[in-house]
Write a protein that binds this DNA or RNA. Structure first.
Length: 423
RNA sequence: GCGGAUAUGGUGAAGGGGUUAACACGGUGGAUUGUGGUUCCAUUAUGCUAGGGUUCGAAUCCCUAUAUCCGCCCCA
């Protein structure tokens, strides 16, 4: 038997319904926020991700799906959404002929070659947003508000918003230097992974789980102390606007993110429910004022975030949140014999096109099993089509909940159903 | 890339070397019930992830592979 590829999953049944419900909600929310829908290719030139995400990041060095096409081009399945959107923004010259800022949203599969575990897949879906052309801290907060509001609309309660700032590139590199100087004498006290981080990405030492309780961690330099005036002011304003929207947050000075392109604001929303797997970050994002330039566009500031659908659904599960999903049908049609199937089938299709959810027996079941099936499908009404009904055009329709039966002319069925199928 | 656990039907699973692989749910057929939801009967894995090995005999013991789950790293 051929099995699905490692780290992938199939969607069907209740999971599929919930997914569609959430996707709908996202679409509606983005419409209200007036964001523009973007869909960029699932594969892009490998260079895009190398330069966009960062040559040294784990995502690029060991997690991408790279391949050559028949024309010997180097391509990569996108490991994240931002690089593609930025590429599209630049390539379509949106800095020129679009209203500023450009607010984009996207939704789709991402690919990372990682060892699967709870809350982590090789093919996973992200919903995300990118805003180009404004460095107003209000935009940072608008972006943070999107996942926060989405979670709120879905009913999630056990969440925590963490924010931090890395400052602009000047502040960021001053801080990085200070951090390296601080940790250098203690290098031997750090765990193996941190020794590695010291060279590759010293900021990440701060959120190491192994060394978290070390005394030296407590006295490590904080980003806040290395911010220049503009950066400081930006962060203060972010906090101000968060308060204006009544969004609860915690400043977590150890929060740094794995992608190279962030400047100023970074944030993550984590699930606090107990029992949630160790991958408890539901979404994350931040500002990236240099990325567009890095990818050969004009100097343009940007902010964005991405949210993992699988983790969102897992969080809903852990909080036992029921989504309002329709699990019933309006009508189940039972043709008594082969002779009534064409008549029944025609009526079935007609009612479907008039807006009702209609199912019909496809398996020539006997009456008993058909009724059973109608129950299983949670059908509100059942119709048995026999010789008599076909001849007279008068149909007996049974309310499957009250058991009440009505004899109705075929042409009055639509009205009848309209009146009797309420919420 | 490293570490731990697990692998029996459509589903949940029992069995830890001895002839027909328990039980439950579900499916199908039938009986009963005022046209179903109750009850009853029958039926539903020549096979226990795959490939080797040990043995008179393997779902059960050993090896290898694969897959799944979980943790580390990293990330959403």
């Amino acid at each position: 038997m051929i099995q699905k590829a490692k780290g992938t999953y199939d969607v069907y049944g209740q999971y599929g319904k919930r997914l569609l419900y959430i996707e709908d909600l996202i679409e509606g929310l983005m419409e209200k926020y007036n964001y523009e829908y973007f869909r960029t290719p699932i594969f892009e030139s490998s260079n895009l991700f190398h330069r966009g995400v960062g040559e040294a990041t784990d995502i690029v060095t060991k997690e991408t799906y790279d391949f050559k096409d028949r024309g010997n081009r180097d391509l990569t399945l996108r490991p994240e959404g931002t690089a593609g959107i930025v590429r599209s923004y630049i390539e379509n010259k949106m800095y020129g002929n679009h209203s500023i800022p450009v607010k984009a949203w996207y939704y789709g599969p991402m690919y990372r070659y990682e060892r699967p575990q709870s809350g982590r897949f090789r093919e996973f879906y992200q919903f995300g947003v990118e805003v180009f052309g404004s460095n107003d801290p209000m935009v940072d907060v608008e972006v943070i508000s999107i996942p926060v509001n989405l979670y709120k609309l879905l009913g999630l309660k056990e969440i925590k918003v963490n924010i931090n700032t890395l400052g602009d590139s000047e502040s960021r590199s001053n801080y990085r230097e200070a951090l390296v100087e601080y940790f250098r004498p203690y290098l031997n006290d750090l765990c193996e992974d941190c020794k590695d981080r010291f060279n590759k990405n010293p900021l990440r030492i701060l959120d190491c789980k192994v060394d978290a309780n070390l005394e030296i961690m407590k006295h490590a330099p904080k980003t806040i102390d290395y911010l220049n005036e503009t950066s400081k002011k930006h962060f203060e304003n972010v906090k101000k606007y968060l308060s204006a929207l009544n969004i609860d947050y915690v400043v977590n000075t150890n929060l740094v993110r794995g992608l190279d392109y962030y400047t100023h604001t970074v944030f993550e929303v984590e699930a606090k429910v107990k029992g949630f797997g160790s991958q408890n970050v539901l979404c994350g994002g931040g500002r990236y004022d240099n990325l567009v330039e890095t990818l050969d566009g004009p100097k343009t500031s940007g902010v964005g975030f991405a949210l993992g659908m699988e983790r969102l659904i897992a969080a809903l599960d852990y909080e036992k949140i029921e989504l309002p999903i329709v699990n019933n049908i309006d009508l189940y049609i039972i043709p008594v014999s082969e002779n009534e199937k064409d008549y029944s089938f025609n009526m079935c299709m007609d009612l479907r096109l008039n807006g009702f959810i209609v199912e019909i027996d496809y398996n020539n079941r006997n009456l008993k099993n058909n009724f059973k099936n109608a129950d299983r499908l949670n059908s509100k009404f059942v119709m048995i089509i026999g010789e008599e009904e076909v001849k007279t055009g008068i149909i007996t329709i049974k309310n499957n909940i009250t058991k009440e039966e009505n004899k109705i002319k075929k042409e009055d069925l639509i009205n009848f159903l309209d009146e009797n199928i309420g919420e």
